[in-house]
Computed example of a mutant assay.
Amino acid sequence: MSVYAVVFLTLVAVWCFAGRFFAIRSVVAKALSRWRHILLPLVLIAIGLLILIEGGAFGV
């Protein structure tokens, strides 16, 4: 069980460092600051729909 926790925390750290790496780039930072109010809801809705569809909530 501890191996899973270590792998999980390591990969979370990788995601955090990758996010920071891309966010401090001026081109990406400008695009994020301009479009974040549209991108974040779209991403969250897409993730929610994916979870519902993969979980069989619609009986499809």
Rank of each mutant, 00 (worst) to 15 (best):
M1L: 04
S2Q: 12
S2E: 15
V3L: 15
V3S: 14
V3W: 06
Y4K: 15
A5M: 11
V7N: 11
F8G: 11
F8V: 07
F8A: 14
L9A: 13
T10E: 13
T10I: 09
T10V: 12
L11T: 14
L11F: 14
L11P: 07
V12E: 10
A13M: 11
A13R: 00
V14G: 09
W15Y: 11
W15D: 14
C16S: 13
F17V: 15
F17C: 12
A18Y: 05
G19K: 00
F21T: 05
F22G: 02
F22R: 02
F22P: 02
A23C: 05
A23L: 08
I24E: 15
I24Q: 10
S26C: 01
S26M: 04
S26I: 05
V27E: 14
V28H: 01
V28P: 03
K30M: 03
A31R: 04
A31V: 00
L32N: 04
L32E: 00
S33V: 00
R34L: 04
R36F: 00
H37K: 10
H37Y: 06
L40W: 00
P41N: 09
L42C: 15
L42G: 15
L44Q: 11
L44H: 04
L44Y: 08
L44V: 10
I45P: 07
A46N: 11
I47H: 06
I47K: 09
I47S: 12
L49E: 13
L49Y: 12
L50K: 14
L50W: 08
L50D: 14
I51N: 12
I53E: 14
I53F: 11
E54M: 13
G56H: 05
A57F: 09
G59C: 06
G59S: 12
G59N: 12
G59V: 09
V60R: 10
V60T: 12
